[in-house]
């Protein structure tokens, strides 16, 4: 059964070969499929996986075309700050970027983001993953972070279910990473609410 109860969503997932872009993409897309959404993904394979730039394009309830057109992505999840900048022209006006970075994006880009009303939420996901004892779980920390913002219309419980379903040997580690990212996201949202806006 295909459900259309969630709006069309175009997501760019970007990073570097070895950061687990494909795994993160599968986690999100499988969760969306489990909820009955239409999903089309384009993955990077082959030579680029050897340390090159790697991206996935993911469409929920959208076109069957594998790639997203520049200027039309609703969301980006970037595991690397430079790759976030590299892919920024995929974003539509009013889109949101989630980036693994301890100090956001390079300040020069700010005027453009403001002009296009593109929001950026950053989290030092690599540091959080290292604290949890596994740098390789950075991708899953970011999934939890994005879930806290409810940007994917995919409830955290459903992501947890997907990880459990996969029953891989890293499942326990991934559940911890997802939870840590989610809590960090929630703290960020709460503290933003406490600060009165200008």
């Amino acid at each position: 059964m295909t459900s259309t109860s969630t709006p069309e969503l175009k997501i760019v997932i970007a990073g570097i070969g070895g950061q687990g872009i494909v795994f993160l993409t599968r986690l999100i897309s499988q969760t969306a499929v489990n909820l009955g959404y239409r999903v089309v993904v384009s993955e990077t394979h082959g030579m680029s996986q050897r340390g090159g730039a790697v991206f996935s394009h993911l469409k929920v309830n959208g076109s069957d075309a594998p790639l997203i057109q520049r200027g039309s992505a609703d969301l980006m999840i970037a595991l690397d700050a430079n790759e976030a900048l590299q892919n920024m022209d995929y974003m539509r006006r009013g889109g949101t970027v989630f980036v693994n970075s301890k100090d956001g994006l390079r300040p020069e880009i700010a005027p453009h983001l403001e002009r296009l009303n593109i929001r950026v939420a950053s989290l030092p996901a690599s540091a959080i993953a290292v604290e949890l004892g596994s740098a390789a779980a950075t991708n899953i920390v970011m999934a939890g972070f994005v879930a806290a913002y409810d940007a994917l219309n995919l409830p955290l419980e459903n992501m947890i279910e997907t990880i459990k379903q996969a029953a891989s040997k890293g499942a326990e580690r991934n559940l911890k990473a997802l939870e840590a990212g989610f809590q960090a996201g929630q703290r960020q949202i709460e503290s933003a609410q406490k600060i009165p806006s200008e």
């Binding site: 057109q69 520049r70 200027g71 022209d89 390079r106 880009i109 453009h112 002009r115 296009l116």
Partner: peptide, 19 residues
């Protein structure tokens, strides 16, 4: 085109690391 030409041109000036 939905692409913002100004942003695309600006990204090219950032001399980001070529991976």
């Amino acid at each position: 085109s939905p692409e913002d030409g100004e942003l695309s041109a600006f990204i090219k000036t950032l001399s980001l690391p070529v991976r």
